[in-house]
Design a protein around this nucleic acid. Sequence first.
DNA 1: CGTTCAACCTGGGCGC
DNA 2: TGCGCCCAGGTTGAAC
Length: 294
Amino acid sequence: MPELPEVETMRRGIAPAVGMRIDRVEIPRGRLRPLLIEPAPPQFASHVRGSVLEAAERFGKRLALRLRATDAKSSRARLATAATPRWLVVEPRMTGLLLVAEPPTQEHVRLRLGGESPAGRPAELLFWDRRGLGTLRLVDADGLARLCGEDRLGPDALEISAAELITRLGGSARAVKVALLDQKALAGVGNLYAAEILFRAGIDPRTRCSRLSRPRWRRLHAVMQEVLAEAIELEGSTLSDATYRTALNEPGRYQARHQVYGRAGQPCQVCGTDVTRIVQAQRSTFFCRACQVR
DNA sequence: CGTTCAACCTGGGCGC
DNA sequence: TGCGCCCAGGTTGAAC
């Protein structure tokens, strides 16, 4: 679910919590697999408790929350925290959410916020994940580089230049839709926005990257910026299952703009041709056979 | 290089 | 009503 626009919306939604101290960490027993939370809950909680949320940064579809340790009670804790700047890396995957309002059902992790709390500041930060495929990982600077560094993620889709996009993907033999999903090449675009971007660019998703002309790459680049910016403006896409919510537990509004995603068999809003669904790399691809050409 | 499959999970929708 | 199946905004590693 969450792609770049949804994760950016999440980042902005929790921004009011930046500067606040995490006074308590509550992790319901038996609800978190090792894959989902690292280190294991007792260590995770003891490391996070007492720290101040200093910043929330987005890397593609991931969020990294920078934590600073404060007034550690024991010298042992002070040593440990001073030696390792800590980042809480949140990877929502399909259904993970960060919320400052009550989640739809029991949350997975609840961080109670304290310290200076002027009116309007959230009292809690919640992680909720219906399918439980997301991850929360507490890491040091090396760990952050391993999870979000340039070996792992390509340039952010909102920041990459047209020239760099062409350099990174232009020579590939893969279908352009598949290449756009490659987070090592380009970070942030997922299945939904890849479909919408290619529709607006008029490009058949099956076209091999190496067959696209430079003008078409530049068009694709410009359209990618437009689509992502509009989706952020409308706080992301909430699909029919309503899983994705903003940090305030409200639906996004970009779904009203979808031209092809999830619209198989319905008429293209530009030309009336039925939208087609195919499968590429085991994922659904939606496109208009008339508007999108090779 | 590239593709393909399975795995991690829950839950909604559909046909029978 | 219920069962079995397919589907889903993502990522990863193995096999070919």
